[in-house]
Amino acid sequence: MNDCVIETQMLTKRYGSTTVVNNVSIHVKRGRIYGLLGRNGAGKTTTMKMILGLSAISSGEVRLFGESLKKNERKLYPRIGSIIETPGFYPHLTGTENLQIFARIRGTIKQNAVQEALKTVGLPYDDKKPFSSYSLGMKQRLGIANAILNDPELLILDEPTNGLDPIGIAEVRAFIRSLSEEYGKTILISSHILTEIALLADDIGILHHGNLLEENTMADLEKKNQKYIHIQVTSQSLAAQVLERVLHTNNYTAEADNSMRIYDTGIDLVELNKALVSVGAGVSTIQICSDNLEDYFKKITGGVGIE
């Protein structure tokens, strides 16, 4: 049985001669959080918009809940909640009034859905404050409340932590995690913030210039990440001499802040420390590390960082 809630096949979006999404095939499995990672303009939002029918598909196919999207939109879309770009609400109405409008449009949701959704995201019910005077954090929360209003099986969240302060980001992250773990929701989330995706996602897709460069589980990525010895010394030149002349390796890189990465992990740490101290290289740190998601992102995008 196909366990993919979202499956795109060779999804492509062209604007004239410009291809913004090129043959993207992503697979979002049931109950998991799928992080779509890429720089601004990589094609994350466009991909999500095509899945949601907001943007026409130039070629390729979208399958939701195992069924082709074509001709099944009315059946499939009520099972999805989404935030795309900035959450949009009527500025002169309160949060409750705004949600009542969208609840009315959806038609088939529970009587107290608005109250429950607001409670879930920590916003007051029947507040007199209009949406225009909400803080950015409150606006994002209201966007999430709208997305969960109809108790959807699938959530598509485009940069839901955009513009939030660090505490707000942590709260939203915890909330998204709880939606997946406690309520079994499947979540497709996009972000250009690596740590965000690294902390949230079970699976990851890396988009770069409209191409899906990698699709993998976070667990596999962690396994694939290269290990290295990280040292911090007072003199990189002395340390380099030790590595090349004493330990006979040139498989290392010099980093900022007098730190170095030695990819020859067969070197004994005690021997390395002794050798560095003996030439007066002043070792302050020595430890075995592995590449993080940012290193991996740089590697597969050809050295381009995400920010």
Partner: peptide, 10 residues
């Protein structure tokens, strides 16, 4: 930006 919320309502 409510057009997006309206269309995804759906």
């Amino acid at each position: 930006h409510t057009i997006i919320n309206m269309l995804t309502a759906p």
